[in-house]
């Protein structure tokens, strides 16, 4: 899949933002007043900024409100509802915490649950697609959820929890890569089933339909070199998970090390998300002879 910057920014930052809202809603840390204002400003900037970035890849963003209508079947529509609900409920909670110095515990819990559901609905937009076997696995929502929760814990300053959650998220990340690497092969879809002709190995794409490129090739047939993918995975693991954990478990880690851990995590997160898209093989590539399976 084409790793569009708008979608990478959207899923990475809104995931972090809703992860932070989850912890704030649960009362970790139990902030009020100006400190709470700073926390909520960061959470909303990330969550709303991410959602706004997602509208940049739309062909006709002026009609975006229509995306609220099909919640019965569409995960994208559900995500629209859940994200707005989470942001509104948490806005009430944040207002009371910042200006009235009170924390409405139950509202916070509801907001936290909605934040988590928002991230789940985002993950299901990808996880539901049978056309992309690498995404069509139960670990996809687990991967995006653990990353969001771990990132949220990190931003919320929950040092011990963040270190443990990052380690868990790293394990899920590695498992997602491993299952994903053989997913296309195991899906049973290949050029022979795509065309109904021949058997795998004795059919070959001879001529593409056009001499030029097209939307399908640009959107779905991004190929990332295996060598680079291995290097990038190491970078994502080191920056996104390893280094932040090390920085967090240094005794007496203050704001400076915490900030470094956040910066490192974001760099690793964006790398991981770039790979999430760039490595995903859409089955339409088979028709163009662009998949080895």
């Amino acid at each position: 899949m084409h790793p569009a910057p708008s979608v990478i920014i959207f899923t990475s930052f809104s995931g972090l933002g809703f992860g932070l809202l989850l912890f704030l809603g649960l009362g970790f840390p139990p902030v009020t007043g100006w400190v709470a204002f700073v926390f909520y400003a960061i959470a909303y900037a990330l969550a709303v900024g991410g959602l706004l970035a997602s509208t940049f890849h739309l062909g006709n963003p002026q009609r975006a409100l229509k995306a609220f209508t099909q919640w019965k079947t569409s995960w994208l529509s559900r995500e629209a509802w859940l994200s707005v609900a989470a942001l509104l409920v948490m806005a009430v909670y944040a207002f009371c915490a910042v200006f009235l110095d009170t924390r409405l515990t139950v509202i916070g819990w509801i907001g936290a649950a909605l934040s988590l559901l928002t991230v789940y609905s985002t993950s299901m937009i990808y996880g539901q697609l049978r056309t992309v076997p690498r995404w069509n696995q139960p670990l996809t929502p687990v991967h995006l959820l653990t990353l969001s929760i771990a990132g949220g814990a990190l931003l919320a300053g929950q040092m011990t929890a963040a270190a443990a959650l990052l380690a868990l998220a790293a394990a899920v990340q590695v498992a997602h890569w491993q299952v994903g690497d053989s997913a296309l092969k195991e899906s049973g879809t290949n050029l022979a089933t795509a065309t109904g002709l021949g058997t795998p190995g004795n059919i070959r794409a001879f001529e593409p339909p056009h001499t030029g490129t097209n939307y399908l090739l640009k959107e779905f047939v991004h190929v990332v070199g295996r060598k680079h993918s291995r290097k990038l995975r190491m970078i994502a693991l080191t920056l996104g998970y390893g280094l932040p954990v090390v920085l967090l478990i240094i005794p007496g880690a203050g704001h400076v090390l915490g900030l470094l851990a956040v910066i490192s995590h974001v760099a690793g997160l964006v790398t991981s998300r770039w790979l999430f898209f760039a490595e995903a093989e859409h089955v339409v590539g088979l028709y163009y002879g662009k998949r080895s399976a």
Binding site: H57, G59, P61, R63, A67, L76, T131, E219, V284, Y287
Partner: peptide, 21 residues
């Protein structure tokens, strides 16, 4: 009513849908 999000083209295994540039 189409917002041009492209998700339907992602969901189609046959490459039957193309977003007009």
């Amino acid at each position: 009513a189409c917002i041009g999000c492209g998700l339907c083209a992602w969901a189609c295994p046959y490459g039957a849908r193309e977003l007009d540039a």
